[in-house]
């Protein structure tokens, strides 16, 4: 039995896979951003234990390949008796990865806020959380927007790795189609075009934001 694939069939299937790439990217970015903010607060806290924990977390995820992080979530959690689907493992792995990188990017932005802002707000009797919320983060945010949007490109491309643990996103769909159609060049060319279509607007947006905030300073 032999199924014939038209080019439209290929594109249609890839679009289906692309939907999951997009969904995974969004989830990783939103949840990773939330978790990243938490890590950032720990990293900036005066408590040394919190600082060390956050620093270790960031270095762990920055110092190991994303693929290993996914393997550890996907194969490790079942060892602890927790069954994870490829979908859950992919979302969890990418969220952890994103949170570590965003925390580190944002730390740089927070540290770009002059020390005098901390001192002035401290001298007005604001506590750490109040300083962060009302004085430091609003200023760090302006600096953070461009690199954060820029990093979202890395998240989108990072989702490709989840194909290896069997999550059927764009790349995995592409592999299956390549095997079925014997047209790997066409299929992977379209896959690449799909990623480019997602990432390029983000890059352009990041660049325009960078220019905008640069002028505004």
């Amino acid at each position: 039995m032999f199924v014939q694939f038209t080019t439209w069939d290929i594109v249609r299937n890839l679009l289906e896979g692309g939907k999951w790439t997009l969904a995974l990217s969004l989830i990783a970015f939103v949840l990773g951003g939330t978790a990243g903010l938490l890590v950032l607060f720990l990293r900036m806290a005066r408590n040394r234990v919190a600082q060390a924990l956050a620093k270790g977390y960031i270095e762990l995820f920055q110092g190991t390949p994303l693929l290993m992080q996914l393997f550890i979530v996907f194969f490790g959690l079942p060892l602890a008796g927790i069954d994870v689907s490829p979908w859950l493992a992919a979302a969890l792995g990418l969220t952890l990865f994103t949170s570590a990188y965003l925390a580190e990017i944002w730390r740089g932005c927070v540290e770009s806020v002059p020390r005098g802002q901390w001192e002035a707000s401290a001298s007005l009797a604001l506590g750490f959380t109040q300083q962060m919320r009302h004085v430091i983060l609003p200023q760090a945010l302006r600096v953070a927007i461009a690199p954060t949007v820029g990093f979202s490109v890395q998240v989108v491309k990072g989702t490709a790795v989840t194909s290896i643990i069997g999550f059927t996103e764009l790349t995995k769909t592409g592999s299956m189609l390549a095997n079925a159609t014997f047209q790997p060049f066409l299929v992977f060319g379209l896959v690449a075009a799909g990623y480019f279509a997602l990432c390029y607007p983000l890059s352009l947006y990041a660049k325009s934001l960078e220019r905008k905030f640069h002028v505004a300073r």
């Binding site: 802002q117 001192e119 002035a120 707000s121 009302h134 200023q139 302006r142």
Partner: peptide
Amino acid sequence: FQQFNLFPH
């Protein structure tokens, strides 16, 4: 402070 340190935002 010497450098005013107003909150610019």
